[in-house]
Amino acid sequence: MVKAIQVGLGFWGFDWTKEVIPQVPTVEMVAYVDANPEAIARVQAELGVPQNKCFLSLEEAARSVEADLVIATLRTEAHYPVVKQALELDFNVIVEKPFASTIAQAKELVALAKARNRILMVSQNYRFQPAPIAAAEMIGAQKFGPINLVSIDFRRHAPSQGYRYWDMPDPLLADMSIHHFDLMRMVLNDNPKRVSCRTWNPAGSPFGHHPTGVATIEFEKGVIVSYRGSWMSNGPATPWAGEWTIDCSEGEIWWTSRDHFMGKAGPDRLQTRERDAQPKQVELAPVEYPDRRGTLAAVAKVIETGSVPARFSSGEDNLYSLALVQATILSAFRDGEWVEIAEVMERV
């Protein structure tokens, strides 16, 4: 059993406490931390967490319990100071995405984890689904030969779906597209080289910043990805991972993932189609611990065994997902100018 302290019991943190952590039997919760007494009172009243497991600071919890792991489920701007403190206290850490606000902060945390010989994992939960795993394996085996083009569409209509963050900067690229960008890297087993991106705010939108955008992303091995995303689409809603078409020299792979929302739940889907043939539905192998449960189970297993599995989203690996987000934002600011990932990675 991996003993864990959760830091951050707000809206999303409470969901982790209630829905995610109890479903990972290899993790034993020894403490819950939040600086807000009301958040502490809520987990005690609604989830029956005992008072002696609740603390107002990580330092206080660290003095009181023995633990292997900190689960950081706070707002983004709090990630850096809390993760840094946890690593300095010699805890392993799993943190929600994005794990830092800047590349400089992210690099500092990665270096600190290495210096302390601690594990730092980013909870890129979309990786732990059947369809992207199967797609990554097909691409790795070159089932249909080299890739010609990857096309991705994400469509949601936020005003009619309970979206709440109207004033968030870069609501598409920073809040949503990071999932798609990280999946690109996982499925293609490659890192981005440069990007051109445009974003805009449609007429009548309640957003204060741009919820719609398009990007062309070139990867190191030469694959080009055409990405289109919108929080203001009136077209058919896609699953959260978007709809992917991977056109290869000998055929096509189409897939989508995380098709659930407001009581609706559907399985991941993946189809293959050889040239000039009818598409075939592929039966997908189930994932033992999907989604956020998968990220938590994965970091617990690494702590227990010391063995890092394929497609593990370490902080060091996730630097390139964070850099792709920041490069698209910078390109959009520059009216679609190509931005090299190296430029973003080197910025202080």
Rank of each mutant, 00 (worst) to 15 (best):
V20K: 05
V20E: 07
I21F: 13
V24E: 02
P25R: 14
E28P: 10
M29A: 10
A31N: 11
A31S: 09
V33M: 05
D34I: 13
A35C: 02
A35W: 00
P37S: 15
E38D: 13
E38F: 03
A39T: 05
I40G: 08
I40Y: 09
V43S: 11
Q44P: 00
E46M: 12
G48K: 00
G48R: 01
Q51E: 14
K53F: 02
K53P: 02
L56D: 09
S57C: 05
S57V: 11
S57L: 09
L58V: 05
E59I: 07
E60K: 06
A62F: 03
R63I: 02
V65I: 10
V65N: 06
V65D: 03
E66R: 14
E66Y: 13
L69A: 08
I71A: 09
T73N: 03
L74E: 03
R75Y: 15
T76G: 12
E77K: 00
H79F: 00
P81G: 12
V82E: 07
K84L: 12
A86Y: 05
L87C: 07
E88R: 03
E88I: 02
F91Y: 15
F91P: 10
V93Y: 05
V93F: 07
I94A: 00
V95T: 15
A100Y: 00
T102V: 06
T102F: 06
T102S: 12
A104G: 05
A106I: 04
E108G: 01
E108T: 01
A115I: 11
N117M: 07
R118C: 10
I119D: 11
I119H: 11
